[in-house]
Design a protein around this nucleic acid. Structure first.
Lengths: 208, 208
DNA sequence: AATGCTATCCCCCAGAAAGGGGGATATTTT
DNA sequence: AAAATATCCCCCTTTCTGGGGGATAGCATT
């Protein structure tokens, strides 16, 4: 027999919550076991609900969705959580993803996308709407017009990982003085004069 | 009038290439201006083709897709490139995204997904198939069971960004000795005895 | 052929930082 | 009440940093 997917909604807008509830309950193997207007209201029931997937709004009274996220994840490690919100600022997206969200959908997502997303995250997958994908992908892109050479980039990367010049030298089979020369050139190119500033500038400009 | 989207395919398998070509040409405002069996063959024509979007395979004779990616991006900065491949290892995905890919689709993607993706990246957006989204999202997730306290995490994060103990101390309005105490505890918890190892271990275990 | 860029190595120096010890104390959390 | 956390203090030596001054060989582009 095919076990149905247990879903919980946490969303403060009554109309929207009910809308999602009926939408998801129409799907054959979906079962919205409960829905709540806030995390604070949901908290003591979640364990009993045993949800496979939670659709979680960010903005709500009391504990907000991002605050609730890690708490839920710890209490129910096998539950996959989809953030469903109107907000799509990079800060919120990254915060949600680092805190363990399995999906991030904005509320303009179509019914089909939401249903797909629930199914996808239930198997441990990832789901995001296109505007979120845009943010995430841009966060990966390096600056292809870095003034730093390959060697300099290599060395700055190692510095950013905490290696000292002597460690770098022995790893790269070159002299410490060579590393020092490269670092000097890096500092000139980035117009900085300390490790911290070099890392900061290089990260900001996406050279590393 | 509505300008049509100029598309170029670079894919070594003749059958697949032709399949995508007819698929995409069926879309009203899509125009596959050219298709090539390799980047080396495409190279001297790309500027004239003026593609808005390129669908790029990774595996092909000569210069492969990932090597070609930054070259194309530099020559045609306004062209958005979608990687279309059978491979979906994290290494390849991250490499492609850092090199400026606007999308990463695996070849099991449906026709509709591919069409959507082309449209999405043409406006500077991001597109990825669900298995790629899974990889990308997992790369963000922090370990929620870090042994480090908030303060320790804060400090280790700053160390990883190249700050010295004295800089951290003044930023956090605490004494250098306090920072030192935290660092000592961090080292004990992570079972390391140097900055580099602490950063390395913490990153591996996703504590920062 | 010449220029420039890159990667490699060498020396001086003073001051800063790191890491290993040994503690103490107050607040918070459990 | 006990444990964890955050704060601060002292000792010490070794290492690292950043600023200054170079040199040389290879490679690419012009």
């Amino acid at each position: 027999m095919n076990q149905s997917l247990r879903i919980v909604l946490i969303e403060d807008d009554d109309i929207i919550r009910m809308g999602y509830q009926s939408l998801l309950n129409e799907v054959e193997d979906f079962n919205v076991v409960n829905s709540y207007a806030s995390y604070d209201l949901a908290r003591k029931h979640l364990e009993a609900d045993q949800p496979d997937v939670i659709l979680l709004d960010i903005q709500m009274p009391g504990t907000n969705g991002l605050q609730a996220l890690p708490i839920i994840k710890k209490a129910l490690p096998n539950t996959n959580i989809i953030i469903l919100t109107v907000f799509d600022s990079p800060e919120l997206v990254f915060e949600a993803l680092t805190m363990g969200a399995g999906g991030y959908l904005t509320k303009n997502s179509s019914a089909a996308k939401i249903i797909d997303a629930v199914r996808e995250v239930s198997t441990g997958g990832g789901a995001m709407s296109t505007n979120v994908a845009r943010i995430v992908m841009h966060s990966f892109q390096k600056n292809l017009n870095s003034p730093l050479t390959k060697r300099e980039t290599e060395i700055l990367d190692r510095i950013a990982n905490g290696q000292t010049k002597s460690q770098i030298a022995s790893d790269l089979f070159i002299d410490q003085e060579t590393v020092r020369s490269h670092v000097k050139n890096i500092y000139i190119k980035l117009d900085v004069n300390s490790k911290a500033d070099a890392i900061k500038t290089a990260k900001e400009k996406r050279f590393i």
